[in-house]
Amino acid sequence: MSPNAVIPSHRKPRRSASSRALRAGVTGGIITLAVTGASMPASAAEKPVSETQEMPTITSALATSLAKSADTAQQMALDYERQAAQDTATAQATEAATKAKDEADKKAAAEKKAEEARQAEEKAKEKEKAEQQRASRSSERTSLRSLAATSDDSPVTGATGSTSSLVGFLRAQLGKSYVLGASGPSAYDCSSLVQAAYRTIGIDLPRTSQPQSTAGTQVDLGNLQVGDILYWGSAGSAYHVGVYVGNGNFIGAQNSSTGIVEKPLSYSQPTGAVRVL
């Protein structure tokens, strides 16, 4: 055996004082705790936990999560702000449209009122003009009746001074030629003869038969008076005209074969008549 070899001791290990005290206390029926070792300073025992606990370590995953949360919160704030701006713009647009509509309605109402006033004024002017024309025509008829009657070979039943002048002119044209488009004095067509006859008593008529057939008041053929304009065809589209001269006769520029003639109504029954005098 080596001189340096360690020979294990056969002695039992020494129990600590605390172990002996605990055993002694248990044996005697009293538990006594004895704590050995270095004593803990009072200041260390009373130190707050907040000063002793360690801060959690911020890992990369935690940082990423926090960043995402911040981005989400910022995006929500931006969305709320954008929505608020859109709501404000919509409300302003609605208010502007309502205001524009109200103004348009007011303008339309004002224009309608002005147009109604203008039409009423025009109607009043037309009515006044028509009354003046009727008064003027009545005055002309009165003055024409005072003119001396033109001499005639035969009397005209129911003729006044103006109608006598009218019939006198027409009878002076008997035998003259009918030429379409002619206006006298040597030749006439049907409407130019009627126009020339009425011009001698101061009344201007349209040149053609169509407007002449509506130039006066429509009268029944059974109630004719001297000077009434006879027409053939429908009123407004007549194709021929003549003048009733009384005693059941009319004078007209009939056609190129007969020229200007005086004939009974039965010779060519007219469609209607208008009264100008």
Rank of each mutant, 00 (worst) to 15 (best):
A182R: 02
D204K: 10
D204R: 11
I203G: 03
C190D: 04
Y178I: 00
L174P: 05
S177F: 05
P185I: 11
V179F: 04
D204P: 02
G202F: 14
L205M: 11
Y178R: 00
S192H: 03
R171T: 12
P206I: 07
L180S: 09
V179C: 08
C190G: 06
I201M: 12
L180Y: 15
T200E: 14
S183D: 13
S183V: 14
S186T: 13
I203C: 04
S177N: 14
P185K: 14
Q173R: 11
V194P: 03
G202W: 10
V194G: 00
S192D: 04
L193V: 07
G202C: 13
G181E: 09
V179G: 00
A172Q: 13
S183H: 07
A182K: 03
A197P: 06
L193G: 03
I201R: 07
G184Q: 05
S191L: 03
T200C: 04
D204N: 15
V179K: 00
I203H: 01
I201H: 06
A196M: 09
P206Y: 06
A172V: 06
G202D: 14
A187C: 09
L205V: 13
S177P: 04
Y178V: 03
A197F: 05
D204Q: 12
D189E: 11
G181N: 07
R199P: 01
D189A: 04
S186L: 12
S192M: 06
S191V: 01
R171C: 10
A172D: 14
A196G: 09
L174Y: 10
A196K: 13
L174D: 10
A196D: 11
G184L: 10
V179I: 15
R199A: 14
K176R: 15
G181F: 08
L174H: 13
R171E: 12
L205G: 08
L180D: 03
R171A: 06
G175T: 12
S191K: 01
Y188A: 02
D204G: 12
Y188G: 05
V179H: 00
D204M: 12
L180G: 05
D189C: 05
D204W: 07
S191M: 00
I201V: 15
Y198N: 02
D204V: 13
C190T: 05
V194A: 10
A172K: 15
I201T: 12
C190K: 03
Q173A: 08
G175D: 08
G175V: 12
D189G: 05
A172R: 11
A182S: 15
C190Y: 02
A187R: 01
L205Q: 14
V194D: 03
K176Y: 07
T200Y: 07
C190Q: 09
Q195S: 13
L180M: 10
L174G: 10
S192N: 05
Y188E: 04
A196T: 14
Y188K: 02
V194S: 06
K176S: 13
A187P: 02
T200K: 14
A196I: 13
V194I: 14
S177V: 12
G181C: 08
